[in-house]
């Protein structure tokens, strides 16, 4: 489904502080699988995730989605693909403070111009599924860490993306909440959604919900 061919990514290229986060990654990610990118800090996991999720473009190499090269697309097209194909759960959740849980969930769908009633129904169904219906009107800063993460998951699913991307999803959660997240992840796997996540938490990478673990170090894949 997603294929990366000799992908490299440099930051501050040509400057004294030039840094290569990825130094030639070739990888194929299958659809309807849960894939975990594992590695220590600075190994390039998050950078790889941003390239896969169309948040950034590689410095060199190719990224293809369903056989279509997306590495050189202009920002507008990348945004369109990102909105339709990917849902993101960030490490810090990145919810918008001051807005309610349901408003945060609906945010990614605002630029699509979908009718409000349809959107609200979908958001409510997602909150219901994630056992957050009773907190729908609560401002996100009043929610617990676990609740905030579930709002972030609901937000990632509002546009019904094919791929869910989660960056260090359990980094800010205690064991109980991390297990809760894995249960949700398992349900996504069961319904055939593609999930790509980064983690170095054994609870995640050793979970039965994860179909494949890709190891990374120093911007390169590590052979299993």
């Amino acid at each position: 489904m997603i294929e990366l061919r000799d992908v490299r990514k440099a930051f501050n290229q040509g400057q004294h502080n030039e840094y290569w986060a990825l130094s030639g990654i070739s990888l194929a990610i299958e659809a309807k699988q849960v894939t975990a990118l594992r590695g220590p800090s600075g190994s390039g996991k998050t950078t790889l995730l941003t390239l896969i999720g169309c948040l950034a473009r590689p410095t060199s190499g190719r990224v293809t989605l369903h056989g279509r090269d997306i590495s050189g697309l202009p920002e507008r097209f990348l945004t369109d693909i990102r909105r339709k194909t990917f849902g993101f759960v960030f490490q810090q959740f990145n919810l918008i403070k001051g807005l309610s849980a349901i408003e945060n969930v609906m945010l990614p769908a605002y630029p699509t111009g979908r009718p409000h009633r349809e959107l609200a129904a979908r958001a409510e169904a997602l909150l219901e599924r994630l056992r957050l219906a009773h907190r729908r009107d609560a401002r996100v800063e009043w929610l617990s860490g676990g609740e905030q993460q579930r709002v972030a998951i609901a937000r990632a699913l509002i546009n019904d993306p094919e791929v869910l991307i989660a960056d260090e999803p359990t980094a800010n959660l205690d064991t109980a909440l991390a297990k809760e997240f894995m249960a949700i992840l398992e349900s996504f796997g069961a319904e055939g959604r593609t999930v790509i996540l980064t983690s170095h938490d054994p609870l995640v990478v050793e979970s039965a919900a994860v179909n494949r673990v890709v190891d990374m170090r120093d911007g390169l894949l590590v052979a299993p």
Binding site: T79, R83, I96, P108, R155, N159
Partner: peptide, 15 residues
């Protein structure tokens, strides 16, 4: 930060 989040979740620069 909010602008960054909106862009990451699928808002275009124009939006």
């Amino acid at each position: 930060r909010e602008i960054g989040i909106l862009k990451a979740i699928g808002w275009e620069t124009g939006d």
